[in-house]
Design a protein around this nucleic acid. Structure first.
Lengths: 196, 196
DNA sequence: CGAATAATATGATCGTGCTCATATTACTGG
DNA sequence: CCAGTAATATGAGCACGATCATATTATTCG
């Protein structure tokens, strides 16, 4: 097997398909890696040739959704203010992630935790890709380059919104949107007040 | 054993002593519940008669420290603004928690996660006790009663600071103090702008 | 084709947090 | 002092994420 038959790496997809179905029906904790392997018709050990951890599977699922959310967002374009642009970005992400909503808490707890210098690359890409868009939007709206401290504060608020959303009991998650709105308003106002 | 010999419940203290020592020398993940039990001279199962989970031990240790921080704080009193009062409160907490700094991440990930409606009572008391003081300070400084949304946002920022602090590499954790300062400035400014 | 080699798959096994049936201990009333 | 009882302790055992030595399969080269 010098050059991997890329066709076989569709095993990866079988794992993802099996996982999402099991997670949907039995939840994250209610699904074991053995279940996933069985359902994907591979051995337990094989699963970990494809994903470093159980959470990494969810991270992969989330990343796919986030990618399409970002694509949809950049097409939308043109927002009056930075706050509105950020709101549109996150709202688009949440829309795409809807099916994974209940799976986000495990992710937030382990992989996305408020800061904690990256444990895994998966972590990093989820975080840095989002932050790069945010930094770009800030630039585009005429704000000074965001400092590490500013990015830190933004990330904290962002994960706070995600965590709230994951457990939001309000009928159409309108509480989350209120929180998002206020969080961003607070952040942008702080930016405008010109700190470093 | 109708009425428990309260003297024997000093086993609890032995567990805490053993745990803090092991955590200090081997870290949280590097210490197993078996290690703790062995060192406290009890059986593994017994440990879980005293603490629901491994994290609950850390939570207990943290709560003790936080209690004394709060005591020290209320004596200090008199701060010009709400932001300064909150800064003093959190700074006092961090000072007390210093010895537990590296143990806080596991706690934040599981027990204190940004919101997630309480898994355990331990969780709740850590959170509600802090928030009650914050709400009290706000009242005392003439702010309107903090809404659930405001408390939510505060808690997100607070745990964000704790998480950053737990991994802060700067010599005297001065980066954390900068983050705390700005987070509170942002929050209080938002409060003043009179949202609901 | 048939070694030789390298990538991948396998499942027994491990480590660890936690549980639970059972044993032990401490206390009570007679 | 002796059952009887209830609180507590015990450690074998479980579940499950993850690992790793070994087996299998694919690919290359002579």
């Amino acid at each position: 097997m010098r050059i991997t038959a890329q066709q076989k790496s569709a095993t990866r997809q079988r794992i993802l398909d099996a996982a999402i179905e099991l997670f949907r029906t039995h939840g994250f904790e209610g699904t074991t890696t053995r279940d996933i392997a069985l359902s994907a018709e591979i051995a337990t050990g094989t699963l970990f040739n494809y994903f470093e951890t159980k959470e990494a599977i969810v991270a992969e699922l989330a990343e796919e959704k986030l990618a399409s959310a970002r694509a949809a967002f950049t097409e939308a374009t043109k927002h009056a203010g930075l706050d509105e642009a950020l709101f549109a970005l996150v709202a688009a992400e949440l829309r795409q992630l809807k099916a994974l909503r209940k799976l986000m808490l495990p992710l937030l707890e382990t992989t996305l935790s408020p800061l904690t210098t990256s444990r895994s690359p998966v972590n990093d890409s989820l975080r840095t890709e989002h932050l790069e868009i945010v930094a770009g939007l800030a630039r585009q709206h005429g704000y000074a380059e965001l400092s590490p401290l500013a990015l830190q504060m933004y990330w904290t608020l962002y994960t706070g919104v995600l965590a709230f959303w994951a457990g939001d009991k309000s009928p159409k998650q309108e509480d989350t949107l209120a929180l998002l709105d206020q969080s961003l308003a607070m952040f942008v106002a702080w930016l405008r007040s010109g700190v470093r």
